[in-house]
Design a binder for these strands. Sequence first.
DNA 1: ATACTCTTGTGAATTCTTTCACATATTTTA
DNA 2: TAAAATATGTGAAAGAATTCACAAGAGTAT
Lengths: 208, 208
Amino acid sequence: MRRISESTISRLSLYYRTLETLQRENVTTISSGELARSNKFTPAQVRKDLSFFGSFGTRGLGYPVSELKDKIASILGLCKTWNVALVGVGNVGSALVSYKEFQRQGFIIKKIFDNDLRKIGKNHKGILVSDVKNLNMELKENKIEMVIIAVPSSEAQKVVDEVVGAGVRTILNFATTNLKVPENVVLRSVNMAMELEHLSYALANQKR
Amino acid sequence: MRRISESTISRLSLYYRTLETLQRENVTTISSGELARSNKFTPAQVRKDLSFFGSFGTRGLGYPVSELKDKIASILGLCKTWNVALVGVGNVGSALVSYKEFQRQGFIIKKIFDNDLRKIGKNHKGILVSDVKNLNMELKENKIEMVIIAVPSSEAQKVVDEVVGAGVRTILNFATTNLKVPENVVLRSVNMAMELEHLSYALANQKR
DNA sequence: ATACTCTTGTGAATTCTTTCACATATTTTA
DNA sequence: TAAAATATGTGAAAGAATTCACAAGAGTAT
Ligand SMILES: NC(=O)c1ccc[n+]([C@@H]2O[C@H](COP(=O)([O-])OP(=O)(O)OC[C@H]3O[C@@H](n4cnc5c(N)ncnc54)[C@H](O)[C@@H]3O)[C@@H](O)[C@H]2O)c1
Ligand SMILES: NC(=O)c1ccc[n+]([C@@H]2O[C@H](COP(=O)([O-])OP(=O)(O)OC[C@H]3O[C@@H](n4cnc5c(N)ncnc54)[C@H](O)[C@@H]3O)[C@@H](O)[C@H]2O)c1
């Protein structure tokens, strides 16, 4: 199978969200056209994206909402739960821990780590804060599959190296630095400054 | 001038960050090759991106770090400051308010809004929380140019409509819904769930 | 001065992504 | 049961983004 582009995966996420909503509204069938409209894509784009993974629709009718949703869930790996750890229980880290939507989606925050002695050993929204010193061991022991990095940018590479060393293959990063990971590790970064810069670019270069 | 792609703008952000670091390290000159390597791009990509905006390098030598940084800042609209407002002072909103790096970059959070009576009128990290009822008026009065939306997803469209109604042209959204804005408004969304789903896709489909 | 090295800037080639357009399958209507 | 309507699935076309490859400018060494 041809390698699937990142934009296709992003769009699948969006389709998935739309399908969740439709399911709640008891809509049973949706056409590529309607699915496209609700996300500002084209119908052809929707069909092409789905066609990479199989053919899920009925000609003349459209796609069955609940089946398609399940199928996308299976493609995106949302049928099982994932063991997630968070490193850095500061502003961003706290927000993430308290966000129950992730758990609901199957991303279970099993362990949280910090290096601040005032935080270690305390309960944080129901989870005990562990000492980052034991990171390697605890990641392995708890079979952690994804790690979220929310430490200060200056600490991030160090933490990433440890996380990679413990065999974790996927990392979500909130720090603002360029992090280096080996080929076989998937690192994605949430870069809010970059998003703001897209906005300032738009304002600074807006055609009058 | 040909329309510049979003990916070019994203890369400029990354170049900018690298140049900031280099400047701190007193590096005066950098080649496209080195600039590429530190971000896992290709040298040709770096040169092409920059060439859309002019020719800033010296053949045989490379680019002058500090000049190039300033030039990119000017392209991205980082030379001036922008008046930003935040709506929704919850977990995410609080994290953003306390993040001083944005201010340093010129994104000045002038006003913060909430609809929770327990929060309105109180000081939040040095900024008074205003009543979202006065949103329209206050956005205009304070000449707000960008708005960050950090309200629950169910409230987001309502807030966006008001913000657009007040003439704001750029919005950064943290809610997880598909928001509709008119053509001339730039909306960017930070979608952490989507990022996690890229990771689970990678794990679920990893070649062994 | 001249040769040599280095690295930019950029058309052209390539690769990747999106859109088109239509044959095909299914449902609906009559 | 046949015709009309609808919407998928997919090669092919078009469009974008990336990479190639090299002429040309600038510095350095001899
Ligand atoms: N707050 C924001 O809105 C925001 C926005 C954009 C980017 N970021 C980035 O997100 C990251 C976290 O930001 P924040 O505002 O939550 O910072 P923070 O200072 O509030 O939290 C960082 C936490 O990490 C802990 N920590 C420090 N070093 C550590 C280590 N080596 N191991 C484990 N824990 C360690 C600290 O004790 C603290 O609890 C930073 O890299 C920041 O650049 C934050
Ligand atoms: N917390 C996270 O880690 C996280 C992760 C991903 C996405 N999000 C999204 O970010 C948004 C904010 O999340 P949060 O965790 O900060 O939520 P939160 O509930 O902590 O904060 C929301 C804030 O918005 C205020 N609010 C509600 N309705 C409002 C209105 N109409 N006008 C003004 N203020 C209003 C509330 O009083 C509250 O202070 C949500 O849309 C959520 O889906 C959050």
